[in-house]
Design a protein around this nucleic acid. Structure first.
Lengths: 150, 150
DNA sequence: CAAAGTAGTCAGAGACTCTGACCAATGTCA
DNA sequence: TGACATTGGTCAGAGTCTCTGACTACTTTG
């Protein structure tokens, strides 16, 4: 009985994820975004177009409020985000994307598209579609935030 | 044209990976392996049955030799690994799994199997098979170590 | 054998994350 | 309405993870 791979599905998921992340950071760094660390990016990625509260960012990124605050401080210093008062709650502030973040986002999106293309060429259209389908379905039982951002 | 998910494939890969990792660490901690950090585990996972050199561990885990050394120091202190001289090269030492690591590995393997079962129940046998198939294929172009550990 | 390369360590610094304690605004309910 | 719990966020301090640079010891190569 030929076993195709002994690697567990976890590792198998991680490998392409890391490859993609590495690619993104390499290009971002080359484009002048050489500040911007992985940890910062994980927070940055979760900021909505209208801004997002620190607490919400912390929950989604699965870090403490303090850690999220620390990372947002840095993103603010390097010009990726602004903090604006939340008009609906005077305790809260909205973390908003600044110009520099939009620029980085555009670059990152380009790389993602490029890499997804490469993957599709390697897997074939059908298998790539099956992969995404399975992953989207899997999200229902592995992502506590599955309702959001439909 | 109904878009099924706006999330890029990278995030989609990361979500189930993290869910699995969280499950493993929760159970491991409950079973007395509450020392053992994610960073240590990523190194531990890569130690072969006959022992593995530090440099090789560092390459596979994609960290520097110093970082790998730091993590192995800790694993040694907490009784997960031993360092033995490499009979084929007096510069080198083999990092070997100790009893405690085997015990942790057994637990982790159990959780992985359990989670993979849950995923298969959610996706159905066919889609789960397609998922693994696609990921194994993807490994060819995303894992620099794809030749090893066939 | 001398030079170059490889295995690993030491030292120091920066990045990331956590716990605990705290303040201010908001929500709840008797 | 007024005490009390909850929620959004910060400050301080500590531990973990990772890196760069410099170094020693052994091996390989010409």
């Amino acid at each position: 009985m030929a076993v195709e791979s002994e690697l567990n599905t976890g590792v198998l998921l991680f490998l392409p994820y890391r490859a993609l992340e590495n690619r993104i950071f390499a290009v971002l760094a080359a484009a002048g975004h050489d500040d911007l660390t992985p940890a910062q990016a994980r927070v940055l990625q979760r900021i909505g177009p209208e801004g997002t509260r620190l607490t919400e960012l912390a929950e989604q990124a699965q870090v403490t409020k303090q850690t999220a605050g620390f990372l947002v401080d840095q993103l603010e210093k390097t010009g990726y985000v602004r903090r604006e008062p939340d008009p609906t709650d005077r305790r809260a502030r909205l973390v908003c994307l600044a110009q520099r973040a939009w620029a980085a986002k555009e670059i990152a999106d380009g790389i993602v598209a490029e890499v997804e293309d490469e993957w599709e060429r390697h897997l074939g259209k059908r298998r790539m579609k099956q992969l995404r389908e399975a992953l989207i379905l899997l999200r229902e039982i592995t992502d506590p935030w599955a309702e959001r951002q439909p």
